[in-house]
Design a protein around this nucleic acid. Structure first.
Length: 571
RNA sequence: UGCCCGGUGGUGUAGCGGUAGCACGUCAGCCUUUGGAGCUGUAAGCCCUGGUUCGAACCCAGGCCGGGCAGCCA
């Protein structure tokens, strides 16, 4: 009864977990489960990485003694930087995962990798090729034609060893030679046509400095790094499927511990872009404010947007693991954060587009304080006092001079409730004489309704949020929408995906009125603005007593849907 | 025109030869001092064609469709 299977029938068993379980039962790895998350430190992590992180750390955590390594795949010094090493660690930790002491770098294995390469040479399974990059490509053949063997393919082990050592010692220029495995130039799998495993690259490595001028390639370094770390299950994305034979070949050729590579589909999301190239394009083109712009699907962007680690983890669970390549609806991500914040975010009233309401029969100068529940989902969160006075702000959208059918909010002559406060009735609409714009409403309140209900028990259809004008705190609020207007990028494989960007992905409101209590809201803290959505205090741009709010996600808006279907349907 | 991988409601995911389930989304109703949340219900699916079998989403064959692969990137 303590087995995980019997306690939780919802434990999802995707095909990878099934393999791990089988391997455990057959004792393939002596009962060990060791996974790894192996990012190249050349960019910021995004929600797609989160899927891999949740998988790798998740699988490991499901077994006693299971561990997941964090390994930086830093074999290409040209593209990598310490900045990314730091941000990646921060993001993985923030997501709630812990690699303990298992932090590794492929560059830690450069010496070992080099020795293995010499061994391959001695065994006649690797050779130094002196063809140019263009020539190698030419000799490789095509998808449908076999490749040809390099004229250098049959150099003696002695000559290869000598050349390789001189490569290491810096005797040759970049590109003069490479080390290739000797496999099969006619293989239908291009990865097996004598892949390059070492290239000369004079670049200062962020960790090894100038110690090396030759660097191992991914396929070679990755397989051996997994082996060195005794990884049992090396989980990676589908595009590496064709590389698995090389992965296996490498470990077999060197007769070392065999890790097992298993591939799964990477995550795609609607209405956004995920590739590093495109994200970089957005940052460099100034289409967003940076890698942590709240519109970005990066972990740092989502964090700044107000997403919680829990919501992201839940999302990854919902998405599941399989081998089909798919596009997950953004609505699922939004559902996950709403679900989390609904339970945990304190409620607060904030008017985004203020319209002043004067309550004519309310005594000038008098202030009432009403109790407002902090979270109806969680009574333990208590309540707070909210000041009320003769002039309040309500949302412009909450008033219609000509209310359409099923519009339950304020309109001339209509009575609604101000949440937690009282019933008011609209008596007069003041307009700008020139523009005709409604600039102020005059209402009366029913003193009997103070507290939000009346002794006669009469009901009102609408309940509006509000903020007392003289107590209101001025705030800036940023409303975010999808990066891409359409669900996907369609056939726009060119750089011209910029034309598909949603021009309204950011809307900044500078004249918002929020409850005074928000003056000392903590950076990053999350709230529900009642009837509107979830917002968090921007960690970058907020000042003391001057919070800037980011909208994480709106509340589901059934009125908006009604209105939409009304306009679609004609009336 | 080579090799590899995949195809279950709109979306994602279970099902491993025995009545196709779950989640998101949709729509409707109930409830409501958030048009939120919650509750109830609805519609919607096994790529196709054969075969094996008492019985096929599952096994076999052939097709169709989608994706990946020709870095000295990862």
């Amino acid at each position: 009864m303590t087995s995980p299977e019997s306690t939780s029938e919802s434990t999802s068993t995707d095909f990878i977990r099934a393999i791990v379980q089988d391997d455990l039962e057959s004792n393939k790895y002596d009962g060990r489960v060791v996974t790894r998350f192996p990012p190249e430190p050349n960019g910021y992590l995004h929600i797609g990485h989160a899927k891999s992180i949740c998988l790798n750390f998740g699988v490991a955590s499901e077994y006693d003694g299971g561990v997941c390594h964090l390994r930086f795949d830093d074999t290409n010094p040209l593209r990598e930087d310490i900045e990314y090493i730091n941000s990646i660690q921060e993001d993985v930790r923030w997501l709630g995962f812990d690699w303990g002491s298992h932090l590794y770098y492929a560059s830690d294995y450069f010496d070992a990798l080099y020795s293995f390469a010499e061994q391959l040479i001695l065994d006649g399974r690797a050779y130094v090729d002196s063809l140019s990059a263009d020539e190698i490509r030419d000799y490789r053949g095509t998808l449908t034609e076999p490749g040809r063997e390099s004229p250098y393919r049959n150099r003696s082990a002695e000559e290869n060893l000598d050349l390789f050592r001189r490569m290491r010692d810096g005797e040759f220029e970049d590109g003069a030679h490479v080390l290739r495995t000797k496999i099969d130039m006619e293989s239908p799998n291009l990865n097996m046509r004598d892949p390059t495993i070492y290239r000369i690259r004079r670049a200062t490595h962020h960790r090894t400095g100038d110690k090396w001028c030759i660097y191992p390639m991914y396929d070679y370094a990755h397989a051996l790094s997994d082996s060195i770390e005794n990884i049992t299950h090396s989980l990676c994305t589908l595009e590496f499927e064709d590389h698995r034979p090389l992965y296996d070949w490498t470990l077999e050729a060197l007769d070392v511990y065999r890790s097992q590579q298993i591939e799964f589909a990477r995550l795609n999301l609607t209405n956004t872009v995920m590739s590093k190239r495109r994200l970089l394009q957005l940052v460099e083109g100034g289409y967003v404010s940076g890698w942590d712009d709240p519109r970005m699907p990066t972990i740092s962007g989502l964090r700044r947007r107000g997403y919680t680690p829990e919501a992201i983890r839940t999302f990854c669970e919902h998405v599941g693991i399989s081998k089909r390549d798919t596009v997950v609806n953004m609505a699922l991500l939004e559902h996950c954060i709403r679900e989390d914040l609904n339970l945990h975010a304190p409620r607060v009233m904030a008017v985004l587009n203020p319209l002043k309401v004067v309550i004519d029969n309310f005594p000038e100068g008098e202030v009432l304080e009403f109790d407002a529940v902090n979270n109806p989902e969680d009574p333990s969160m208590g309540s707070r006092k909210v000041p009320f006075s003769r002039e309040v702000y309500i949302e412009r959208d909450d008033f219609r001079e000509d209310p359409p059918s099923r519009f339950f909010r304020l309109a001339p002559g209509r009575e609604v409730r101000l949440r937690y406060a009282c019933y008011i009735t609209c008596q007069e609409v003041v307009k700008d004489p020139e523009t005709g714009e409604v600039i102020e409403l005059h209402c009366t309140y029913d003193p009997e309704s103070v507290g939000g209900s009346t002794p006669d028990g009469r009901r009102v259809r609408g309940t509006l949020h509000w903020v007392s004008a003289r107590h209101a705190l001025q705030a800036e609020v940023r409303l975010y929408d999808y990066l891409l207007r359409d669900a996907d990028e369609g056939d726009e494989d060119s750089r011209d995906f910029i034309s598909l960007l949603n021009p309204d992905s950011l809307q900044t409101l500078i004249d918002c009125k929020v409850e005074p209590g928000l003056a000392d809201a903590e950076l990053g803290s999350r709230y529900q603005f009642e009837r509107q959505g979830y917002f968090c205090v921007d960690t970058r741009d907020s000042g003391p007593g001057a919070p800037v709010f980011n909208r994480t996600v709106s509340l589901r808006d059934s009125w908006a849907r009604i209105e939409q279907s009304q306009s679609r349907g004609g009336s």
